[in-house]
Amino acid sequence: MDIQRIDLDRPGDLLAGLHDAHLAAFAHLQGPRMSLPDFTRMVSRGLPGDLMEAWAVVEDGVVVAGYGLELPMSDNTHLGRLRPLLVRPGRRRRGLGTALLAHAADRLRTAGRRLLVAEGEAKDPAAGFARARGFTASLGEARRMLDLRTADWHRLERMLGEAEARAGGYRLERWIGAAPPELHDDLVLMMEGMNDAPQSDDVDDMKWDTSRIAASEALDSEFAQLTYSMLARRDSDGAPAGYTRVYVDLAQPDGWGRQADTVVLREHRGHRLGMVLKVSNLLWFREMEPDVERIITWNATSNAHMLAINEAMGFELIDEWNAWQLEV
Results as ranks from 00 to 15, higher is better:
306 M>A: 02
5 R>K: 10
59 E>S: 02
12 G>L: 10
165 A>M: 11
308 A>N: 07
109 R>K: 15
49 G>S: 05
145 M>W: 02
68 G>I: 06
80 G>R: 14
132 A>D: 03
315 F>H: 06
232 A>D: 06
172 L>D: 01
328 V>D: 01
63 V>W: 00
100 L>C: 08
162 E>T: 08
61 G>F: 01
256 W>H: 08
328 V>Y: 05
277 L>F: 04
194 M>C: 14
242 G>T: 15
275 M>T: 13
308 A>I: 14
315 F>I: 06
198 P>N: 09
279 V>I: 15
57 V>I: 15
328 V>P: 03
266 R>K: 15
66 G>S: 04
224 A>G: 02
139 L>T: 00
278 K>S: 00
300 A>C: 06
65 A>P: 01
110 T>Q: 14
169 G>T: 12
266 R>H: 10
234 R>E: 11
55 W>Q: 02
91 R>W: 12
131 R>A: 04
244 T>K: 13
261 D>Q: 11
247 Y>S: 05
215 A>T: 15
19 H>W: 14
198 P>Y: 04
104 A>L: 08
30 Q>K: 13
227 T>K: 04
180 P>T: 10
137 A>W: 03
253 P>S: 07
75 D>V: 11
262 T>E: 08
116 L>K: 01
126 A>V: 15
158 R>Q: 08
141 E>I: 05
131 R>M: 03
104 A>W: 10
251 A>P: 09
261 D>N: 13
198 P>M: 08
64 V>R: 09
266 R>V: 12
195 N>T: 10
120 G>V: 11
235 D>H: 14
123 K>A: 07
212 R>H: 11
127 A>F: 10
290 P>Y: 12
139 L>I: 00
104 A>H: 02
237 D>T: 14
188 V>R: 03
208 W>D: 00
193 G>I: 14
227 T>P: 00
62 V>L: 12
170 Y>S: 03
215 A>Y: 13
238 G>P: 15
145 M>Y: 00
55 W>R: 05
315 F>D: 01
68 G>D: 02
282 L>W: 10
1 M>Y: 07
146 L>H: 01
2 D>Y: 04
273 L>Y: 03
239 A>Q: 13
284 W>Q: 05
297 T>F: 13
287 E>C: 08
74 S>R: 14
239 A>E: 09
75 D>T: 12
150 T>E: 06
197 A>G: 04
39 F>W: 04
133 R>T: 02
22 H>G: 01
200 S>A: 14
81 R>F: 13
68 G>E: 04
38 D>N: 11
248 V>S: 03
3 I>W: 07
3 I>D: 00
247 Y>G: 03
274 G>Q: 05
292 V>W: 09
257 G>N: 04
152 D>E: 10
47 L>Y: 09
31 G>C: 07
294 R>V: 12
96 L>I: 07
76 N>W: 06
52 M>F: 04
164 E>H: 07
63 V>D: 00
247 Y>Q: 08
76 N>L: 10
154 H>A: 10
96 L>K: 05
165 A>K: 11
109 R>G: 09
98 T>H: 14
302 S>N: 04
283 L>D: 01
305 H>Q: 09
71 L>G: 00
144 R>N: 00
94 R>W: 08
322 N>T: 07
272 R>G: 00
172 L>M: 15
66 G>Q: 05
90 G>Q: 15
275 M>E: 02
254 D>F: 15
14 L>N: 00
98 T>Q: 13
230 M>H: 11
80 G>H: 13
87 V>E: 05
70 E>D: 01
